[in-house]
Design a protein around this nucleic acid. Structure first.
Length: 315
RNA sequence: CGCGGGGUAGAGCAGUCUGGUAGCUCGUCGGGCUCAUAACCCGGAGGUCAUGUGGUUCAAAUCCCUUCCCCGCAA
């Protein structure tokens, strides 16, 4: 059971594992999405269809809505990765081997919906995958094994998620092996050090340049490649920042002020922050595609002296 | 039919309102300057202005209409 690309990678790993019979893939229903009313299928569904794995898309698992299908499939084990729906107790206890989950953090840290984003946002240097048994709580089940993964300086949410997805795939394969040969271990999570990674929302996207450059850069990394940290240009249009580097000291300057632009090559836009400055290197203007800062400067859309993020956040 | 922006040289844009020689900042190629350079100077190549044997016109990148595609917002 899973939905996004992260889950599709786990599905792939399991599907290619010898001796595993996949009786079905469960993913969220196609949702009318995007500009028109395009129905977009999840990466998990896409992969499952390509491999001729039966796909199930129940709106909910609650209230016995999925019981019939579940009974017919007779799964011995359910592997969950970023599914997006809550599994009720009846489902959790149905399979012979139970339900195992690949969670994108080193539990009990960052339980919840957005562990990867939150870890980057907080400037963590290490995260990982936790293989665990699911219980009725939110990512509170017994831990099978943890797989640490460093967060590199150049990582953004996209690259880190890819790395973790690969680890998660291996972790689940390993978990299946230990389940089958009976060597699986389970360790209750310590309550100490537990934290909750709330889902990333719109309020996490706006950049506040009065904060220090490092935390702003973490914010940009955590939200890249989607949904991206956002600010506004002097003419009031939206501007999303896809990538930025630390730009050194920038004393006595109004936060948000563009102090310097570079038009050669990839270029850059230096923005003063509450502490230090940011060198913006990739961005997405409203109505445009992602482009380098150099392209943006060349198109005459910004110059030194402009003030970004003027509009106070309305919340 | 949710709202809106956009498609002009390899990239990013201007020009469109007020039809009349295809422009700018870069990149690229060649040459020059220099101890040297991603710096500076000179020169060149590169575009059927998304689509339509569309409409209007003496004349369309520009005004009108068609279709396709891209993106932001909202969900």
């Amino acid at each position: 059971m899973g939905t996004p690309a992260f889950a599709a990678e786990v599905l792939r790993a399991i599907a290619e594992k010898p001796g595993v019979e996949l009786v079905g893939a469960v993913t969220r229903p196609d949702k009318p999405k995007g500009r028109g009313m395009k129905l977009l299928m999840s990466p998990v569904k896409e992969y499952a269809l390509a491999r001729s794995i039966p796909v199930f898309q129940p709106k909910t698992l609650k209230n016995g809505a999925f019981d019939q299908e579940l009974a017919a499939l007779e799964p011995e084990l359910i592997v969950v990765a970023a599914y997006g729906n809550i599994l009720p107790h009846e489902v959790l206890v149905f399979p012979k081997y139970g339900c195992v989950n690949a969670h994108g953090s080193l539990l009990p840290k960052y339980r919840g919906a957005s562990p990867i984003q939150r870890a980057i946002l907080d400037g963590e240097r290490e995260t990982g995958i936790t293989a665990m048994f699911m219980d009725d709580g939110l990512d509170t089940g017994d831990v099978i094994k943890t797989y640490p993964c460093p967060i590199e300086d150049g990582d953004d949410c996209g690259s880190l998620t890819e790395k973790l997805a690969v680890i998660a795939g291996k972790a689940m394969c390993e978990t299946i092996d230990t389940l089958l040969d009976g060597t699986v271990t389970r360790t209750p999570q310590p309550e100490e050090g537990a934290s909750y990674a709330a889902k990333i929302g719109k309020e996490d996207e706006a950049l506040d340049f009065s904060r220090d450059a490092e935390s702003l850069r973490n914010q940009i990394r955590a939200l890249s490649p989607a949904p991206l940290a956002s600010t506004t240009t002097p003419d009031g249009r939206g501007l999303k920042i896809a990538q930025a580097a630390l730009g050194g000291d920038c004393p006595d300057t109004e936060p948000g002020l563009v102090t310097e632009v570079g038009s050669k090559g990839e270029g850059y836009v230096r923005v003063a922050c509450g502490k230090g400055s940011l060198l913006i290197t990739k961005l997405v203007p409203e109505g445009k595609k992602c482009m380098s800062a150099g392209d943006f400067v060349r198109g005459r859309k910004i110059a030194a002296g402009d003030l970004l993020g003027r509009q106070p956040e309305r919340l």
